[in-house]
């Protein structure tokens, strides 16, 4: 796999993507997140390491769960957290992005968590502000904390990532989750597969470090992890699939298809799910599903990321 080198970034100050992180960086974040899980399970859930620090969640694209997860993560670390939702309709494209960045920068936050509908937008914003920036999803580019929480979930169940067979299924074309996961899982030595109709695969996918399948039964055969992607119906500007009915028939995860995976396989989904579209309810709620646990791991991973970035920023001062 040769992901382009220019994507590397100032990994020590920002988390803009999984690209640019070393396997050691990733493992260190997962290890710290493991400790944060314990914190979140205590009755007293609040640490004071970020007392007096300010975290702003800036979401140009609406998201209930990711924003809540980051908010909780910041608060459990003791930071003051402010949420700013900028409705896409009122956004005058990037002009406002830069303007917003400058405005927020003047408020002296310590960390900005940013989601934007356009690939590269978070990196652009990061160039304009003095604080640390976490990418909470930029277009179809990356969603690094999702990949980290997925890895943490897998590791807690399987004890490792290396040599596991992970099948990522569905709308890879529009999925930042898929890109971040492909990079992370490869970095930690997993065997990564993607399963999708060709209309939902990006150009050059064969060179992205994955094996490509167009049939679920083949792609899931012997898989340790089945990672479903949300069918981004809101991004389907054209006819990528003929109908939801046909999509579910061929690519929706049901018991018959899942039977091809290993008996102890994990079923994952980044949420929010389209039940009956990419995943059957009985599977989503079934014994192999770790979807709820992913949500819990999300808070822990985000705590680890925020704490690490602010530690490093502190070191630089």
């Amino acid at each position: 796999m040769t992901a382009p080198a220019p994507l590397s970034h100032a990994a020590r100050r920002h988390l803009l993507g999984i690209q640019g992180l070393s396997p050691q960086d990733i493992t260190a974040l997962l290890d710290l997140a493991e400790a944060e899980v314990a914190v979140s399970r205590q009755t007293e859930k609040k640490k004071s390491v970020l007392k007096g620090r300010t975290q702003i969640n800036l979401f140009f694209e609406s998201s209930t769960r990711t924003q809540a997860s980051f908010e909780l993560a910041g608060k459990r670390l003791g930071a003051d957290v402010m949420n700013m939702s900028v409705a896409s309709s009122s956004v005058k494209k990037g002009e406002t992005l830069i303007d917003t960045a400058m405005t927020l920068n003047a408020m002296q936050p310590d960390i900005l968590v940013v989601r934007h509908h356009s690939a590269g937008a978070v990196a652009l914003l990061a160039q304009k502000v003095a604080c640390s920036v976490v990418n909470a999803g930029d277009g179809a580019h990356e969603h690094p904390t999702q990949a980290l929480l997925d890895a943490l979930t897998i590791r807690r169940h399987k004890g490792r990532i290396a040599r596991l067979v992970v099948a990522i299924c569905g709308d890879v074309l529009h999925s930042r989750v898929a890109r971040s996961n492909i990079i992370l899982l490869n970095a930690l030595g997993a065997e990564v597969r993607v399963v999708a109709p060709s209309t939902l695969l990006p150009s050059g996918i064969e060179q992205m470090g994955v094996t490509v399948f167009r049939r679920m039964d083949e792609g899931l055969k012997g898989a340790d992890v089945v990672m479903m992607l949300r069918l981004q119906r809101e991004r389907m500007e054209g006819a990528f699939i003929p109908s939801v009915r046909e999509y579910f028939r061929y690519f929706g995860l049901d018991a018959a298809k899942l039977a091809h995976a290993k008996p102890d396989a994990l079923v994952m989904h980044p949420g929010p799910m389209n039940r009956g579209v990419e995943i059957a309810s009985e599977i989503a709620d079934g014994p192999m599903s770790v979807i709820e646990e992913q949500v819990e791991m999300g808070v822990a991973v985000r705590m680890a990321v925020i704490e690490t970035l602010l530690d490093m920023a502190g070191d630089d001062r």
Partner: peptide, 20 residues
């Protein structure tokens, strides 16, 4: 379509829609 750069591996990594 909505493509903004040459279609191919590089655009795919960047998450940008490609122009064939």
């Amino acid at each position: 379509g909505r493509g903004v750069m040459n279609e191919g591996l590089f655009a795919s990594w960047l998450g940008l829609p490609g122009i064939p």
